[in-house]
Amino acid sequence: MNLFRLAGDLSHLLAIIILLIKIWKTRSCAGLSGKSQILFALVYITRYLDLVTTYISLYNSFMKVIFISTSLATIYLMYSKFRATYDKNHDSFRIEFLIIPCVILSLVINSNFTVLEVLWTFSIYLESVAILPQLFLVSKTGEAESITSHYLFALGSYRALYILNWIYRYYAEGHYELIAIFAGCVQTILYCDFFYLYVTKVLKGKKLQLPA
């Protein structure tokens, strides 16, 4: 565990907390993509199956349980409790266009052809693109509430911090995982446009509004 890794995990946790607070306090999930949340739940469930096979540390198991349970809670809030506020018409990204290529890619490019390993690889690939329905929703409505922008910023920062962690681990421990590094870079690049808007607009007190 190094500082970048810890900061990345905390940023990830913060993103999830911001999201739940936003939904709970405003009693609304307007502006949020339920499809991205379904993809994230799928990511955590397929990645953390090793919860039952391998014990790494209390920290590791605790975070895995938190990520799985909070993502399921978010889906429950969006699709059941606050369903009336869910922006279904704007959330029209076709997630099968992301899931199917990730399934194929994980079957072809993986480090070991076993069930757990292929599912882990699938989750890494899927995570890198899971935010696309949310970014698509923002671009479709042309704006995002500040709290949604903070959520996206924390979520995007998490993988960017992981990249620093991977660089550190490569030099300090000789440890590297090419699949995760490649997908993590793709994931971070997808946020770049948003990061730019966040720094130039939201941090200056303006609403995140896309140019017409």
Partner: peptide, 10 residues
């Protein structure tokens, strides 16, 4: 035989 690196990251 390939030895898998333990996945300690999240």
């Amino acid at each position: 035989e390939l030895k898998l690196v333990q996945k300690d990251e999240l």
